[in-house]
Simulated scan of single mutants.
Amino acid sequence: MTDTTGEHGDRGAPGVSPGAVWLRGELLDIASAPRPDRGPVVVREWTDSVRLRDPAPVGFRSLILIGTGWDGRPPPSKFGEVLAAFAGAGWAVRPHASDRDGESRATARHEDFEVRVYEGSGSGLLTLTGWTPVVYPELRLGQPPFTLSTAPGVLCGDCHGWGVCLDCEGRPYSRYERCWCAANNAGPGLCVECAGRGLRGSGAAPWTRPRREPYGTGAEGAFPPVPVETGHDSTLRALTDVAQRACTCGEFRCSWRNSLSGEGDRLLSRFVGTCQGCGARRAYAFALPLP
């Protein structure tokens, strides 16, 4: 079963990239491998714009969020099977160590395509967030280190994800002079504003190097108490709902974590993440019926 919500994530983004159709089909095939009788769901599709100095975008990339889930308690982990399916399809897979019990993360790359693989804690919810390389309709530019959806935090408003001052690219005007731009001649990828990572936390003062994790760490990464909502029969259905909701700043982009646990005569599915537009912490909780 697929449920497609196609849209442009940024005003002025010119449609989907040529590789988006291939990526969509590839991820649906891979996500179907562990359980062919329970197909994946296309939760959301959108685009990220790429800017230089002007507000008008010069390029864009297409992104897709696919989710899959299984009934049962406790559900079996399908994380290893999905990674094996990626490897069998020719993708380079890199698992990531996790400091959170029951959660699993990995990345998969194929040429300039990349996918973020995530499995929640105890829920059987597995998501694939994939993106295409940036397409430039008119200019010939390289690939930026980040766009709004792929930055591990809040995108720096000064370099727009390039990780380098857009006025001088970190280069001095002469051997003895240093320009006064934000990069301060630190060199390409070493912008003082974003420490070369294309990031700057919400409300951060200039000349600092903060980094805001999308998942949070320590107590900040825990699932906070929030009002419990009803109306969904599975964590996957709840994710489809959450992915359509926007932060108070208007941004919908958020890397969601998930945890499922028993609470009396019901299951409680929790979501938490950091808004990739303003850095605000977002959280939801849903009561699900027992299987």
Rank of each mutant, 00 (worst) to 15 (best):
W91L: 05
W91C: 03
A92H: 14
A92Q: 15
A92N: 13
A92M: 15
V93R: 06
R94M: 15
R94H: 14
P95C: 03
H96T: 06
A97S: 09
A97I: 11
S98E: 06
S98G: 08
D99P: 00
D99F: 12
D99V: 03
R100C: 04
R100D: 01
D101G: 05
G102V: 04
G102P: 04
G102K: 14
G102Y: 04
S104R: 15
R105V: 10
A106R: 09
A106L: 05
T107H: 08
A108W: 12
A108P: 05
R109D: 15
H110T: 13
H110W: 15
E111Y: 11
F113N: 14
F113S: 13
E114Q: 15
V115A: 09
Y118T: 07
E119C: 08
G120I: 09
S121H: 11
S121E: 11
G122L: 08
L126S: 04
L126W: 00
T129P: 00
T129Y: 11
T129R: 09
G130H: 08
G130R: 12
G130A: 12
G130N: 06
T132A: 07
P133W: 03
P133S: 02
P133K: 05
P133G: 09
V135T: 13
V135C: 10
Y136S: 09
P137L: 02
L139D: 12
R140L: 12
L141P: 03
G142L: 01
P144R: 07
P144S: 04
P144E: 03
P145N: 07
T147G: 11
T147F: 02
L148P: 00
L148F: 00
T150E: 02
T150P: 00
T150Q: 01
T150I: 06
G153L: 04
G153V: 04
V154D: 07
L155M: 13
L155R: 11
D158R: 08
D158S: 06
D158M: 05
C159H: 10
C159K: 06
C159S: 05
G161R: 11
G161K: 08
W162A: 05
W162I: 01
W162N: 04
G163H: 03
G163W: 00
V164Q: 11
L166E: 01
C168T: 09
C168H: 15
E169F: 11
E169P: 00
G170W: 09
G170E: 09
R171S: 05
R171V: 12
P172G: 04
P172Y: 04
S174P: 11
S174Y: 07
R175D: 10
Y176S: 13
Y176R: 15
Y176T: 13
E177T: 08
C179V: 02
C179I: 01
W180I: 03
C181V: 01
C181M: 00
C181G: 11
C181N: 05
A182R: 07
A183G: 14
N184Q: 15
N185Q: 07
A186F: 07
